[in-house]
């Protein structure tokens, strides 16, 4: 009896969840009143309004903006898509009027090289640096002595020298792990 009740409750919940999903989808569809000839056209339109920026709102794409100018530009994009124009044509149409600002994907040209190539170059540089560094550490750890910049023993003060001797004698006599926490102090 109880098990049956629980199952009905679960089923009801699932149904309501599905209904919610369906209803929200129809709500989403109600915003877009544009009809397209083909799925490709719709995909092209959606791609473009995601990529193009609303000139009024500083940091929103056309898809996300309700500003009048964004609606106009969406309409224009739609008209041009319907007209069978290519992405490049539509992009250049917008750029002619609103400059590089209009798109979130600025064209690659000398003035935008820094924008496009600096981040990957920096990443490469850092990875190379990191490799070099870890390689060097490894060599030092392996005891390849010529990798060491200066002699550490020479730079020791008498006090440090005494401390070093104390630790050495202790580790020798006890024969314990020198990297124990006590010695690190």
């Amino acid at each position: 009896m109880k098990a049956a009740q629980i199952t009905t409750a679960i089923v009801l919940r699932l149904i309501s969840l599905v209904l919610i999903c369906l209803l929200s989808m129809t709500a989403y569809a109600a915003i877009d009143v544009y009809d397209f000839d083909s799925v490709q056209q719709e995909a092209q339109y959606r791609g473009l309004i995601e990529e193009l920026r609303c000139p009024k709102c500083q940091n929103q794409n056309l898809a996300g903006s309700d500003a009048p100018i964004a609606q106009d530009l969406k309409q224009k994009t739609y008209d041009m898509v319907k007209d069978g124009r290519s992405d490049a044509e539509i992009r250049s149409y917008m750029q002619e009027r609103y400059g590089d600002f209009i798109t979130y994907k600025p064209p690659v040209r000398p003035s935008t090289w820094v924008l496009w190539f600096f981040p990957p170059l920096l990443l490469l540089f850092l990875i190379a640096g990191w490799f070099w560094q870890s390689k060097r550490r490894q060599l030092v750890a392996q005891g390849v002595t010529n990798k060491i910049v200066d002699s550490p023993a020479a730079a020791l003060t008498p006090a440090e020298k005494a401390e070093l001797d104390r630790l050495l004698s202790r580790s020798n006599s006890l024969d314990h792990d020198v990297t124990s926490t006590e010695d690190k102090k």
Binding site: V140, A141, I148, L168, S171, N172, D175, V178
Partner: peptide, 19 residues
């Protein structure tokens, strides 16, 4: 043998510290 190994380790630790 056991005499030598800790010594060497000690040395390395010291090297690493100065670096």
């Amino acid at each position: 043998q056991s005499d030598k190994t800790p010594n060497k380790q000690q040395d390395n630790v010291q090297h690493r510290k100065t670096m």
